[in-house]
Design a protein around this nucleic acid. Structure first.
Lengths: 192, 192
DNA sequence: AAGACTAAAATGAATGTTCATTCTTTTTTT
DNA sequence: AAAAAAAGAATGAACATTCATTTTAGTCTT
């Protein structure tokens, strides 16, 4: 019998086109027809890979989020001291946001709009657990402030998103010196 | 002759409906017909007050942004010492985001998506000038770190937006203690 | 002060377009 | 040859905007 043979390249092209178009126009202003055209595929073909438009964007979100966290936690493991672990993760996240600008912008947009299903949002959140664990450990060891993880995230990790959006809009140019300053500010605002 | 008589209440109702619907569904998923219905007005009536959908959302953005900055800088003037001025502004901003949740959410969404015209975005940015001036003064006086204003903003003001979004989503409950912690983190990350 | 007049304001229905999705046919793969 | 993959065209729904009327409320006349 014939084999399942759906091309992984076609799927990738669809994902990439979705990210690009949603970044520039937003979810509802990117028609399936444009996604198809940019991926050099018929509109009907999209439906061989995804159930519908919502499913497409949900899946892209989860995949990009997974790639992001894999990148962020690449060199981290739970044996590393808290301060060092934080630096490793923070800098990997900064790296990701500078190198994978398209993906990072896409995540920022998803996280700030009602574009994504609540279920997919939850799914994406799960991947951040190692960071929450690190903070718990830091608090237990008396190294970082005993604050809600949301405050810690807000003041140490999330500001990067803002900087990235400003950079993307050409408002200012983020360089290596800025990043070092930003890291100091991030760590300074959470360490005890 | 007959007078110009367009009702300010109708316009306000349209603005309010736009904020509410865009918050919950996003710009492109809120039809003019729904905005009209929520404002108890005929769809055609919207076009007496606004040129088109894009104009509507641009104008709402600029008006909400203006209200936000007016609120933020209410008790501030340039004679106040830097540290005190920062505290006043920061706490007013926090106040606004907690009290005018709908308006604040709307701004967050506009600032993170391609929903608004670039021109309107620029227009909205202008209003923040007093804060940039305050930072310049702080740097001259050697009170705050000599960083790019974007870094200062990212680590002191912007985290509030993140906290607000999390609160809005019911992820966690922001209370007065949290706010004091957040203020300390904000000031700590920018003072020299 | 009542009625008639006028222009703005408001409306509901119509229009034409855009778009997600499906259908039917063709192409590719095994 | 058969079954999956892909395609392009067709379908029908949703939507922004416009159109043709009606309503409202100032102003003028008497």
């Amino acid at each position: 019998m014939a084999q399942l043979q759906k091309s992984i390249e076609k799927r990738n092209a669809l994902v990439k086109a979705t990210i690009h178009l949603v970044n520039n126009n937003g979810f509802h202003a990117t028609p399936m027809s444009k996604i198809a055209k940019m991926a050099s595929v018929s509109p009907a073909t999209i439906y061989l890979y995804f159930d519908n438009k919502q499913d497409l964007v949900n899946k892209v979100y989860i995949e990009v989020k997974a790639a992001f966290t894999a990148y962020a936690f690449k060199n981290y493991n739970t044996d590393i001291p808290v301060a060092e672990g934080f630096e490793i993760i923070w800098k990997r996240i900064a790296d990701f946001k500078l190198k994978e600008v398209q993906e990072a912008m896409f995540l920022a947009q998803c996280d700030n709009t009602p574009m994504i299903d609540e279920a997919s949002r939850q799914e994406g959140l799960k991947h951040l657990q190692p960071l929450l664990d690190l903070w718990e450990r830091g608090k237990r060891e008396g190294i970082i402030k005993p604050l809600s993880p949301y405050l810690l995230y807000a003041y140490s990790i999330n500001p990067l998103s803002f900087l990235m959006v400003m950079q993307q809009r050409g408002v200012f140019q983020l360089n290596q010196d800025h990043l070092e300053d930003a890291y100091q500010a991030a760590w300074g605002s959470i360490k005890k």
